[in-house]
Every structure is written in structure tokens, then in C-alpha cells.
């Protein structure tokens, strides 16, 4: 079996997961890996559940990640963390925002939003690093920087220099938002979950 590593980025359409995968793809390519990034556009963008697959290693074949394969799940929303949990491999790591966004069946009252998701996942013995990214993003200057807060947190788990991350941010976010995003990255990285 090859040494391919798998990162899944999951969230709700419109939360900015595409920028997160773009930055990850950029940095992993620069680090010299073979990389594949796969996402689905179209209908799923309209507030639906969205998922992006990022895979890297010496040689990557499949563009997608299957159940039980993800080394990391990076989640923008806690219900989505629970939804995609079966894709985490044994001993994999979750990095998640604790934000709750009600899906339409919850809004209409047809079903309940599950309670205490973080604790339930923890009780399964799963490694979960949960933080309130929305508050941290607002602290950095914009609620939209949730994606960068999460990336900052994820950077804990990779042996990639701060310089490389900053270079990736510089190359992928508009210049006028660069300082804001650098701040969001550091806030995510240094926060205690």
C-alpha cells in the first residue's frame, strides 16, 4: 500500500471550503507531493452538505476518499462532522468548528438537531480538536475567515513551516485581506481547544 494521506474538508455550501482546499493543494504541491483535490460543484452549493477531498503522497491514483480512509477531517460545522465521521480512518484526527447551522429539515421542525455531538464523538475514542472558529474569525476581523482559522488549527498536525503557510496565504487570498487572514491563521493555530 502506498503512503497517500487523506484530508476531507466538509461543511455547508457557501462556507468557503473551496478556498481552504485551494490553499492546501497549493502548499502540498509546493512541498513536492503528488496531489489530487476533488470537489463537486453545482446543486450541492445551494446550502447543501459539501465535501472536498485532498489527497497527497508519492503517487496518488483515486481523486476521492472512501469510508474509513480519511487521516484528517476538517469540518466547518458540527453536524457535518457527525455526518462524515464514518470516513475517518481508525486513529484519524478531526479538526472541527463547533458552529451549528440548522439544515432545512430541522428548521421546518421535521427532525431534531442532535445534541452534544462533540462529546458523543469523543466518547467513541475519536481524536477531535474542536474550536469556536466563528468567534476567532470575528476576532480576526471577518466572520468569513472561518476557513483560515481552521487551516491554522490543521497546521498543528503537519510538519510544514510557518513560512510555507504564509506563502500559500499570500498566493491565494486578495492582498487587502491578507493581514486579516494571517491573523485568523495564527488565532486558529494558537487557540486552546
Amino acid at each position: 500500500m502506498n503512503n497517500t494521506k487523506n484530508i476531507m474538508i466538509v461543511g455547508v455550501g457557501g462556507q468557503g471550503s473551496l478556498l481552504a482546499s485551494k490553499i492546501l493543494g497549493y502548499i502540498l504541491t509546493n512541498e513536492g507531493y503528488d496531489v489530487k483535490v476533488s470537489e463537486v460543484h453545482g446543486m450541492s452549493q445551494r446550502g447543501g452538505s459539501v465535501v472536498t477531498y485532498v489527497r497527497f503522497g508519492d503517487k496518488v491514483y483515486s481523486p476521492i476518499i472512501d469510508k474509513g480512509e480519511a487521516d484528517y477531517i476538517v469540518s466547518f460545522e458540527i453536524l457535518e462532522t457527525a455526518r462524515w465521521l464514518p470516513f475517518l480512518r481508525p486513529n484519524g484526527q478531526i479538526v472541527t468548528n463547533t458552529q451549528q447551522i440548522d439544515p432545512m429539515p430541522v428548521i421546518t421542525g421535521a427532525v431534531q438537531y442532535p445534541q452534544n455531538i462533540c462529546e458523543k464523538i469523543k466518547n467513541l475514542g475519536v481524536k477531535i480538536d474542536a474550536l469556536d472558529c466563528l468567534t476567532l474569525a470575528r476576532e480576526a476581523g471577518s466572520a468569513k475567515a472561518v476557513n483560515i482559522v481552521l487551516l491554522g488549527r490543521l497546521s498543528h498536525y503537519f510538519d510544514i513551516s510557518q513560512q510555507s503557510w504564509e506563502k500559500a496565504l499570500t498566493a491565494n487570498v486578495p492582498a487587502k485581506f491578507l493581514e486579516l487572514n494571517k491573523k485568523a491563521f495564527v488565532l486558529g493555530k494558537d487557540s486552546v481547544s
Binding site: 455547508v12 474509513g68 480512518r89 432545512m104 427532525v111 464523538i121
Partner: peptide
């Protein structure tokens, strides 16, 4: 062999696309 995977017991509400 396909890897084992885990899930929480609660039913997970679906999140269909919606009008913005």
C-alpha cells in the same frame, strides 16, 4: 480489506440544497 469506521448513534438530519 476496507477499513473499519465509526459513527454516532443519533440519526443525522439530511442537509438538502435549499433556495438561498
Amino acid at each position: 480489506k476496507n477499513a473499519n469506521y465509526t459513527q454516532i448513534d443519533d440519526p443525522i438530519p439530511s442537509r438538502p440544497p435549499v433556495m438561498c
